[in-house]
């Protein structure tokens, strides 16, 4: 089961964990009750059976296997990075007796720092994927989706998986290393059902709607702080592909001038200006390299 990604449904730190899917369905249901046009879009565009969606399903299974068998064993562990970081800090600044803050306070600070640094490095890497030509070819696999569904989240080229894994190892490793250097074993994550509390709340508030046709907005003010599902849908649109790179927080986009806020609209045209399309899973895996060689 775990080799084809079905275990994701029962894994709290996966985007498609059953609780997050249920909460997204609930939010979508309420939204559609008030805005039936969304439901019509699902019917008219045949979102769930669209050829792009069918590719998402097939690709999800193949890439889950590739990740489990080939990628996860290659990715640098955050454990190694954090140990290196602690020993580096001890060598540079000497051993320090651990600071005596309460464990609860340290846990809150650590969980929050991991979340913020993680979100910022996601923004940076995501932006890099859009601005470095070769990486953009890789990332177009994700952006080639013509309709969106929760599994579009996993429509990511394995090279991108490696980059995101490396990003996580470096960011979480450095943050953890600094915290262990300062607070020793007095650290820990605040979790709900085994997931970072911030990621859990994010999941519960409809993170799966980011890859959906439910244009849920948070309002002009909050969309400068948090990326709404609609803002991410705009990011997948042909018109605003290179805007709204943020994962959870919109402040990075606001700070670096890539934020885009728009009034709600339906029937957005998704995809890329390059009109990149992939007919098979094999094309999604190999075409980015093939095209790179040809150009």
């Amino acid at each position: 089961m775990e080799f084809v990604g079905l275990d994701y449904i029962f894994t709290p730190h996966q985007r498609v964990f059953w609780i997050y899917i249920l909460s997204a369905l609930f939010i979508a249901g309420v939204y559609m009750w008030f805005f039936p046009a969304t439901l019509s879009e699902y019917k008219n565009r045949k979102i769930w059976t669209h050829k792009s969606a069918l590719m998402d399903y097939k690709y999800f299974v193949v890439v889950a296997f590739i990740k489990k068998v080939f990628i996860l064993s290659l990715i640098l562990s955050s454990k190694d990075v954090s140990l290196w970081m602690i020993l580096f800090l001890q060598e540079q600044f000497g051993y320090t007796s651990t600071l005596s803050f309460s464990r609860e306070y340290v846990m809150l600070l650590y969980t929050l720092t991991l979340f913020i640094v993680g979100d910022f490095t996601r923004y940076l890497l995501h932006r890099l994927l859009h601005t470095v030509p070769f990486l953009w070819k890789i990332h177009q696999v994700h952006h080639s989706a013509e309709v969106l569904n929760p599994l579009t989240f996993y429509r990511v080229h394995p090279v991108e998986n490696i980059l995101f894994g490396l990003r996580y190892a470096l960011s979480a490793g450095v943050v953890t290393g600094v915290f262990i250097y300062l607070f020793g074993a007095n650290i820990g994550l605040i979790e709900i059902v085994g997931a970072n509390i911030f990621l859990f709340v994010f999941g519960l508030l409809g993170s799966n709607l980011r890859h959906s046709h439910v244009p849920l907005r948070y309002g002009d003010f909050f969309e400068k702080v948090f990326i709404s599902p609609f803002q991410h849908q705009l990011h997948h649109s042909i018109s605003f592909t290179h805007k709204n790179f943020g994962g959870t927080l919109a402040i990075w986009d606001l700070l670096f001038g890539t934020l885009h806020i728009e009034k709600t609209q339906t029937n957005i045209a998704y995809g890329t200006q390059e009109n990149s399309s992939f007919d098979t899973v094999a094309q999604m895996l190999f075409k980015p390299f093939y095209k790179e060689v040809k150009t």
């Binding site: 894994t11 730190h13 996966q14 985007r15 990740k67 990628i71 996860l72 990715i75 562990s77 955050s78 454990k79 954090s82 993680g118 996601r122 995501h126 994927l129 990332h139 994700h142 989240f153 996993y154 990511v156 991108e160 998986n161 490696i162 995101f164 894994g165 990003r167 996580y168 979480a172 953890t176 262990i180 074993a185 650290i187 820990g188 994550l189 970072n196 990621l199 980011r210 991410h232 994962g247």
Partner: peptide
């Protein structure tokens, strides 16, 4: 003992 790996983090967005 602190090691906590998050599979979600290997995915993009």
């Amino acid at each position: 003992l602190n090691f906590k790996q998050d599979l979600l983090e290997a995915d993009g967005d």
